[in-house]
Computed example of a mutant assay.
Amino acid sequence: MSLIPAYAGGNPPHLNNVIIISIDALHPDALRQAKIPTLSKLMQSGAYTLDGRSTEPPKTLIAHTAMFTGMAPGENGKVDNDWITGEATVQKPTIFDSAQRNGFKTGYFYSKEKLGYLVNDAVDVHEWSRDSAIDSAGAFIKTPGRHFVFLHVSGLDQVGPESGWLSPAYIEELSYIDDYLSSLIELISVDKNYLIIVTSDHAGHGKIHGSHHPEDYRLPLVVCSDAVPINQYQNISFSVFDLKKMLGDLLQNDSS
């Protein structure tokens, strides 16, 4: 894999592909323990922090709604962790609205049905698939145009409650996810002018998550690009609320 170091100056080129990858239930310490050549190269070539924090409470749909809207649960209206197809969807502007205004085709691929809550009119293509979200994101990126993708990856959220966060089975699952992501990351990096963000919604401790334990709130942030400056995100304190503003700043840099 060839990843170009962070953009160093001058007029940045227009981003061809922006992809945000949320690895559900990813504990930041697992990035130090697992064999993850794909994610490690992103970390080495870009900027990262292991000092991220989830919402109150730290649960999947609540946290992702905060990511998408840049608002706390009390502000964005999503204070529970449940949704089924046919119910009302998000009413606040999301990261997809900003992407669409910036001329991107938008794709949203997720592995939990309840994340369909976040589909709005600014999402051009969306698909719920428990096992094929990564493949669907890759197929979308191969279509003509500039792409903005949010990809939700499941797996750790199942192994954590069964075997324990940071257990051998959990670390093995992260290595599997890393390997599965490798072809997608290669596709994006070969095309040049990319922005890749990897983060999560929450972590856990023992076999528990969603509680008030400090470990449950933890999450990482990895940012890598060959087209826009990203060094300012090294070792920052990061909240899921910050993602929307971060993307807005990076897209503004791209269009300036």
Rank of each mutant, 00 (worst) to 15 (best):
Val149Tyr: 08
Arg101Gly: 01
Phe104Lys: 07
Ser136Met: 15
Gly103Phe: 00
Val149Ser: 10
Glu113Lys: 15
Arg146His: 06
Phe109Tyr: 05
Gln100Met: 07
Thr106Glu: 08
His152Val: 12
Ser136Leu: 15
Val123Ala: 14
His126Phe: 06
Asp97Met: 09
Ser111Phe: 04
Pro93Cys: 01
Ala133Tyr: 14
Val125Asp: 14
Gly145Ala: 00
Ile134Met: 09
Pro144Tyr: 00
His126Ser: 11
Glu127Pro: 06
Glu113Pro: 08
Gly138Cys: 06
Phe150Trp: 08
Phe140Lys: 04
Ala122Gly: 02
Trp128Lys: 14
Val123Leu: 11
Phe109Cys: 05
Leu151His: 07
Lys105Asn: 11
Ala139Asn: 13
Arg130Gln: 12
Ser98Gln: 11
Phe96His: 03
Val123His: 10
Asp135Val: 08
Ser98Val: 14
Thr94Tyr: 01
Ala99Cys: 02
Asp131Phe: 09
Ser129Ala: 03
Ala137Gln: 10
Pro144Lys: 01
Ile141Arg: 05
Ile141Thr: 07
Thr89Asn: 07
Ser98Glu: 05
Lys142Asn: 13
His126Val: 08
Gly138Phe: 04
Tyr110Arg: 02
Gln100Ala: 07
Val125Met: 09
Val125Ala: 12
Val90Gly: 15
Ser98Gly: 08
Lys92Arg: 09
Gly138Trp: 05
Tyr117Leu: 14
Arg101Lys: 09
Ala88Cys: 13
Leu115Ser: 04
Phe104Asp: 02
Gly107Phe: 12
Lys142Ile: 07
Lys142Pro: 05
Tyr110Ala: 01
Asp121Cys: 11
Asp124Tyr: 06
Leu151Trp: 07
Pro93Phe: 00
Thr94Lys: 02
Ala139Gly: 10
Phe140Thr: 05
Ile141Val: 09
Ser136Gly: 13
Lys112Trp: 15
Asn120Cys: 03
Ala133Trp: 15
Ser111Gln: 09
Gln100Leu: 09
Val90Ile: 14
Thr94His: 02
Val123Glu: 10
Val119Gly: 04
His152Arg: 09
Lys112Met: 14
Ala137Met: 10
Val153Thr: 02
Pro144Met: 02
Leu151Ser: 08
Val119Tyr: 03
Trp128Pro: 11
Thr94Ala: 05
Lys114Ile: 09
Ile134His: 05
Gly145His: 03
Thr106Phe: 06
Ala99Ser: 02
Tyr110Ser: 01
Phe104Asn: 07
Asp135Tyr: 10
Phe140Ser: 05
Leu115Cys: 01
Val119Asn: 03
Lys112Asp: 13
Lys112Val: 15
Val123Ser: 13
Asp121Pro: 10
Asn120Met: 01
Gln91Gly: 14
Asp121Thr: 15
Arg130Asp: 13
Ala88Pro: 13
Ser136Lys: 15
Tyr108Ser: 03
Glu127Tyr: 08
Ser129Pro: 01
Val149His: 06
Thr106Lys: 03
Asp131Glu: 13
Ile134Glu: 06
Leu151Ile: 11
Thr143Gly: 03
Gln100Trp: 03
Pro144Ser: 05
Ala133Gly: 12
Tyr117Asn: 10
Thr89Glu: 08
Thr94Phe: 00
Ala133Ile: 11
Ala137Cys: 07
Lys92Cys: 07
Asp121Glu: 12
Phe109Leu: 01
Ala122Trp: 02
Gly138Tyr: 03
Gly107Leu: 11
Phe104Leu: 04
Lys92Tyr: 00
Lys142Ala: 12
Pro144Thr: 02
Ser111Asn: 12
Thr106Tyr: 04
Val153Arg: 00
Ile134Gly: 11
